[in-house]
């Protein structure tokens, strides 16, 4: 066993040497406070800013229950948050487990299980992927996401967008929202002719291993907001990708092989018919009845505002 003193000597320096990488950043920051540490695109962070951001991560992880020696997984590309998180974990005395951002479910699940990671910090795009394997990773308590990286394609021929805005009291838990909506979608797609449609908890609806619909459940105050994108016909995403700057790992996940009602069943389903099937399955599963309606006057105002905001890209 090396002691702290012996390790410092072994490192070949007689002066004050930081043993840990967290201490290293802290000591360097004392000397180079205002000097630029990280450049990313048009933003720079000084040593002081890097250190303070790492401190916030360390304190924040501690508040979530992460302790010295705990493993924290990282699935991040080269963005400043990588440095904040990495040095934050080091300051806390935790063990960083950074891994390849191109990994898929099976690969990620193995690493999270084997390392016993208590938390993972990843791009927001990866949240679905992590949620899908979460029940295989009993030690994983927190999924921490960064970045506003939502990416949804819409296509007049191929996609249908379904949203559910409901009071939380309709469901026992967020888990049951996933179960219910997943179940409703599976039944809807099966009724539309996709016999092989299946759903993995908190994941996508798939047929023959390919994605048929994605489900995102969000919460805000007293509401659950569910966003679903379903594929009725095969979509050509190439023109959409041409206008995007997308890191390969994101594109790779966005283009996880997808399929459609048409491809799976050999028949087409109209939007009208899909809507009717969906309503029928919701009624069957939840015992709710539906009244066709429009936005209220207040909602209409909110709609105009949100349209303007959404268009200001």
């Amino acid at each position: 066993m090396f002691g702290r003193k012996k390790a410092k000597e072994a490192a070949g320096s007689g002066g004050a040497v930081a043993v840990g990488l967290g201490e290293m950043l802290q000591e360097i920051t004392k000397r180079y406070k205002r000097k630029q540490a990280i450049h990313f695109e048009n933003v720079t962070y000084t040593y002081q800013e890097l250190d303070e951001n790492a401190n916030r991560v360390a304190g924040g992880l501690e508040a979530l229950g992460v302790r010295q020696g705990d493993r924290v997984a990282m699935m991040l590309p080269n963005i400043p948050e990588f440095a904040f998180t990495f040095f934050g974990i080091q300051k806390l005395g935790g063990v960083a487990v950074p891994f390849n951002t191109m990994y898929k479910g099976r690969e990620i699940s193995f690493i999270l299980k084997d390392s016993g990671a208590k938390a993972i910090v990843c791009l927001s795009n990866f949240a679905n992927l992590i949620n899908e394997i979460r029940d295989e990773c009993p030690d994983l308590k927190e999924v921490i996401v960064t970045g506003q990286r939502t990416l949804v394609f819409v296509d007049p021929d191929a996609t249908v967008n379904v949203q559910l805005v409901v009071e939380k009291t309709n469901f026992e838990s967020a888990d049951s929202v996933f179960h219910t909506v997943g179940g409703v979608l599976v039944d809807t797609f099966q009724a539309a002719g996709v016999k092989d449609a299946w759903y993995k908890h908190m994941g996508a609806v798939r047929a023959h291993g390919k994605k048929l619909a994605t489900i995102l459940v969000s919460e805000i105050e007293n509401l659950y907001v569910v966003n679903v994108v379903g594929f009725l016909k095969t979509m050509d995403a190439d023109p959409l990708f041409r206008v995007l700057w997308v890191p390969p790992e994101i594109k790779d996940k966005a283009v996880e092989p997808s399929t459609s009602v048409e491809e799976e069943s050999g028949t087409t389903v109209t939007l009208d018919a899909f809507k009717d099937l969906l309503v029928e399955q919701f009624t069957k599963k939840l015992g709710v009845t539906f009244d066709a309606g429009e936005l209220t006057r207040d909602e209409q105002l909110a709609y105009e505002k949100n349209r303007a905001l959404a268009g200001r890209i």
Binding site: R149, T159, V165
Partner: peptide, 21 residues
């Protein structure tokens, strides 16, 4: 409580602030 079923009549991308287009 509301269920919304929509289709866009144009091809489009809904993107977060950090997605470059």
């Amino acid at each position: 409580d509301t269920l919304i079923v929509q289709r866009s009549t144009v091809r489009g991308i809904i993107a977060g602030a950090d997605v470059r287009i």
